[in-house]
Design a protein around this nucleic acid. Structure first.
Lengths: 166, 166
DNA sequence: CCTGATACTTGTACTCTAGCAAGTGTTGCT
DNA sequence: AGCAACACTTGCTAGAGTACAAGTATCAGG
C-alpha cells in the first residue's frame, strides 16, 4: 500500500518511561474514540474512500484527476468512477481546465466542503466538552503539553491520514 | 448506523479556552497519524471490517456468532460470510459449543491474535519514539496530563472504536 | 503535420460488504 | 410430543472498490 516508512529524525533522544508510553497509548485510544464519533454520522452519507477525496480537496483546493488519483493512491480508472459517484451525489464537480483541455479539475461543492467541516467541528465540540471537565490549571497544562506532543509527532503526512479517512 | 449519542455526564464544567481546544485538535491529528501508520501495513493482509472482528475477539475472548454479529452491528448472514473469509485465511476458527449445539464459538487463532497485537505494538513503538524527543520533565507532564485527559474522555465504547477499526 | 506521450473514460472481471428471505438443525416450553 | 423461538447458513441481489486493458481526445516535440 502506501510507503509509510517512519524514520527517526536527527533529534535528541531521552529515555522513555513505559508508564509514559502507556499513558500516551490510552490517550490515543480516547482521542480515537472522539475521532470515530466525529466521523460516524457522516459515514451514513458517504463511504470512507469517497470522504478521503473530499478531505484532500478541502486542504488543497481543486485538483486535476490524475494528481488526485495519485494522491489517493488508486488507479485513474478506479478514481474516475469514484468521482462519478461523488458528482452524482453532489459533493464535487468536474470542471474543464482552460489551460489544458485534456485535464479535468475536481472541485468540492459547498455541500462537499460542509461535510468535511462538519466532521472537524464535531471533533472540536467534543474535545471542548472533555476539556471542560478539567480545571483551568489542568487545561493550561494540556495546551502546553499537547502542543509539544503534536510538535514532536510532526504534522502527519497527508497520505498517512488518508488511511483512516481524515 | 451505531447509536453514538454522546451525553455530557454530570460533572463540573469549566470554561474552555479555544486555544486549548485547538491544541487538542492538532494533537488528535498527530495521534491519528500514529494510529494510521500502525494499522496501514496490516491492511495489506486484512480488510478493516475483518480486522474489527479480531479486535473484538482479542478483547473479549471467544464469542458465539450471533453475539459477535450484534457487536459488529451487521446481519448474521453478512457476518457468517465474513467469518468464512477469516477462517479461510486462518485468523479465526469456528468451534462447536458443547453446552448448546446450535451455537458456534468464534475463536481467534494465535495467528489472528498476533495480527492485532502487532498493530498495538507498532503504535506503542512509535509513541515511544515521539516521547523520546521530549525532555524527561516534559515526559512526566505528558504522563500526568494525558492520563487526566484520557480519564476525562472516558474509555471509548467498543462499538465506537469499531467505526475506525481499532 | 505526425507521432508519441498524456489525461481521462469505458469495458470487463473480481472481491468484499451488506441485507432480505428461505432453509436446516437445535433448544425450550407447554 | 409438538411447536415456536433461536442460531446459523445459503441463495440471491446490489453497490462499492479495485485493477488491467483498451479506447478517445488532447497536447508537445520534432
Amino acid at each position: 500500500m502506501n510507503s509509510l516508512a517512519q524514520e527517526t529524525p536527527l533529534q535528541p533522544s531521552y529515555p522513555v518511561d513505559e508508564e509514559t508510553v502507556e499513558a500516551a497509548f490510552l490517550a490515543s485510544k480516547a482521542l480515537l474514540g472522539v475521532v470515530a464519533r466525529s466521523i460516524a454520522p457522516t459515514l451514513d452519507n458517504i463511504t470512507l474512500p469517497q470522504f478521503r477525496v473530499l478531505v484532500v480537496l478541502r486542504s488543497t483546493g481543486p485538483m486535476k484527476m490524475s494528481a488526485l488519483a495519485e494522491w489517493i493512491a488508486v488507479q485513474p480508472s478506479t478514481f474516475s468512477r469514484t468521482v462519478d459517484r461523488l458528482v452524482t451525489k453532489g459533493w464535487v464537480t468536474r470542471q474543464p481546465n482552460k489551460d489544458s483541455r485534456r485535464e479535468i479539475l475536481v472541485t468540492a461543492t459547498p455541500h462537499g466542503a460542509e461535510l468535511v467541516d462538519a466532521v472537524a467541528e464535531r471533533r472540536r465540540k467534543e474535545l471542548r466538552h472533555i476539556l471542560a471537565t478539567l480545571t483551568p490549571a489542568d487545561q493550561a497544562q494540556v495546551t502546553l503539553i499537547l502542543s509539544r506532543f503534536a510538535d514532536a509527532a510532526g504534522e502527519p503526512r497527508a497520505d498517512t491520514l488518508l488511511t483512516l479517512g481524515i
